[in-house]
Design a protein around this nucleic acid. Structure first.
Lengths: 215, 215
DNA sequence: GAAACCAGAACTGGATACAACATCCTGCAT
DNA sequence: ATGCAGGATGTTGTATCCAGTTCTGGTTTC
């Protein structure tokens, strides 16, 4: 019962992706202890790729390893959450700035394209397409900065943020408007405006989702 | 006799540290390809810890893995370098802000203590001690923010920055003055000043070290 | 009945052996 | 020289094995 496809990419990478998905989707809960054996059986691979995946996700901050006691899914407290959000905001702003600065024609074309598809999706009230576009949005901006390092770091930070607000949060509805505004500013070359909108965008999301409610 | 003192650390962690040192010190060069076997022989461990270390350092961005062709030490171009520096600056500023904000007595005491030792080291012209203090400086501020996530991310970013300016750069002499100014602002609770000094500090270092020199 | 204790199961950390394959490299034939 | 066959090397993944540690459940003791 091979859970992962038979022969695509390296098993290691598949394992990393699948395990990351399990964590982010909440199928394995924060604080839960993961054993090499159970995961390897669950994913239908041997222990070694699982061990390698553990190291990778440990470095990404999704798992924490305790010597001789294996790994567990991290739980972040509210202070950690605040830091993650602040870091994310800083990095997203850097990304959007760099994107404007580089002004890569290919990226700009992709952004305009995304904008157009967004307009259409709004007209047709295609919520699924919008959800995909929202995913694509941050992906494009990270990539647009032209830095592998920044993309990877941002992905890790986003995963942290996403993880601790409770997995698959559905509140993606009202954000396309903000996204499209940021994209417009970006393709217009107005870095300052784009950065400001990005900051407000992230601040809004935080206010909606996590709040500053320490009981 | 620290918390993890008595029990010897895992071979895996030793391997990660040693391999990281090899990379940052330049003993293995950027672009160089590393084979599991050669590293395992060089470090006197089996291939398994090496493989896990590869995954870890890959996630940290010091190694890049190419399917079926193993890993090689990353080389960053000047654009990547600029991004790394910008990210570092943003994160260091967040760290110093959070440190002031938390105002942890223990951390503040450690900072004051560091300040005092720095003064003494300057008086006695103890360059070695100063070098250690400069290391300690960033370490303390990252830790002071009270976020494991931020410390780890910052360490990775610093390694990137350190790595690509050519390993063991010796130019740590004139920076204690700036460091101590930042510490003073921090213990005084002046986050704005501390952040500003931090920004200038990093900008200065970059101007000194990084020029736009290709080879 | 609850706490302390202890044997054994389960698990991690590490080392090998081995198979399957992809890539690199070398030498031979053209 | 050129190109290619085929071996050498290296990565990737599986399967075992083992030592040491932690966890678990049952038994003994107070």
């Amino acid at each position: 019962m091979n859970t992962i496809g038979s022969r695509h990419r390296s098993l290691r990478d598949e394992t990393v992706d699948e395990l990351r998905r399990l964590i982010l989707s909440g199928e394995v809960e924060p604080g839960e202890r993961l054993s090499e054996l159970s995961i390897s059986e669950r994913l239908g691979v041997s222990r070694l790729p699982v061990r390698e995946a553990f190291r990778r996700l440990e470095a990404e901050g999704l798992l924490k390893s305790i010597p001789r006691r294996g790994v567990r899914v991290v739980e972040l407290d509210s202070h950690e959450l605040a830091v993650v959000r602040e870091v994310r905001m800083a990095l997203e702003v850097i990304a959007v700035n760099k994107t404007v600065q580089r002004n890569d024609p290919e990226v700009m074309q992709a952004l305009r394209n995304s904008l157009e598809r967004g307009r259409k999706a709004v007209d047709e009230d295609d919520r699924e397409a919008l959800s995909g576009l929202n995913e694509e949005f941050h992906e494009l901006l990270a990539e647009g900065a032209g830095s592998h390092f920044l993309s990877e770091t941002l992905r890790a930070v986003r995963n942290q943020a996403h993880h601790l607000v409770g997995g698959v949060s559905a509140a993606v509805g009202p954000s396309w408007e903000e996204h499209s505004a940021i994209i417009r500013a970006t393709v217009d070359g107005d870095a300052e405006l784009a950065a400001m909108l990005m900051r407000r965008h992230l601040a809004d999301r935080h206010a909606h989702q996590g709040g500053t409610s320490p009981a």
